[in-house]
């Protein structure tokens, strides 16, 4: 985060485009992440329906459960923009409430995922069972890892906010964390349809 300050510092904030470098760099990184998840999704799609032994996706996927966790993650994105709004207004109360909501919803999503993974495992789907096991766990697992790091990041910001160290002048920190969070959300939007709904 301080990295951006380095740039902002130089020559009274000079950048050739007027854009903040940290934000531009982060958007670039998101572009790169598209390829990361794109490759995982490609692999899942190539191997879809190619498993030789069960359990197969149609037998174990629990659409109502996943719908709830999808909804939870989607609403966390709403809470995220409200949190950013709170920080920009300089309202510590709103910042803490909404950042807290994002963290709780993110953790809830992770809870659903842990439940889902252990449920599937008890249904007989291990990482080494078939192609579904490998491609499903690695794809959704890496997404879950991203959610986990997002929760850690947002918790850091929440603590900063609680200690009064997140004034509007630092809203950019929250905005960048928000970009990350929304990106993780849109990846799930794609996964929800390609992995769960289209079978």
């Amino acid at each position: 985060m301080a990295e951006a300050a380095a740039v902002a510092h130089d020559d009274h904030h000079y950048t050739s485009t007027g854009l903040n470098s940290w934000k531009l760099g982060f958007w670039t990184l998101i572009g790169s992440e598209c390829l990361f998840f794109g490759t995982l999704i490609s692999t899942y799609m190539v191997y879809k329906g190619q498993s030789i032994v069960g359990p197969f996706s149609g037998e174990i996927f629990d659409i109502p459960l996943t719908t709830v966790s999808t909804f939870v993650l989607l609403m966390s994105s709403l809470a995220m923009v409200l949190a950013l709004d709170g920080v920009q207004r300089g309202s510590r109360k709103l910042s803490m409430i909404w950042l807290g909501v994002v963290i709780l919803l993110g953790a809830t999503f992770l809870g659903f995922q842990v439940y889902e993974f252990s449920h599937f495992y008890h249904e007989g789907l291990g990482l080494d069972t078939n192609l579904l096991g490998s491609s499903f766990y690695v794809l959704t697992g890496f997404h879950g890892t991203h959610v986990f790091f997002g929760v850690v990041w947002l918790t850091t910001l929440w603590v900063m906010s609680a200690r009064g160290k997140l004034p509007p002048s630092k809203a950019l920190n929250v905005e960048i964390a928000g970009l990350y969070w929304h990106f993780v959300d849109i990846v799930w939007i794609v996964i929800f349809v390609l992995v769960y709904l289209i079978q």
Binding site: T17, L19, K23, L24, W27, T28, I30, G31, S32, E33, C34, L35, F37, G38, T39, I41, S42, M45, S77, L78, M80, V81, G178, L179, H182, F183, D185, I186, I189
Partner: peptide, 30 residues
């Protein structure tokens, strides 16, 4: 989500550019 929550609609086109560079190639690859 990208346009409104991530503000791309209101932000500089350059952000859209660097994002789409990766996004388009990802869609192409899939």
């Amino acid at each position: 989500v990208v346009m409104f929550f991530m503000h791309l609609k209101f932000d500089s086109k350059l952000f859209t550019g660097v994002f789409l560079a990766g996004m388009v190639l990802a869609i192409f690859m899939v």
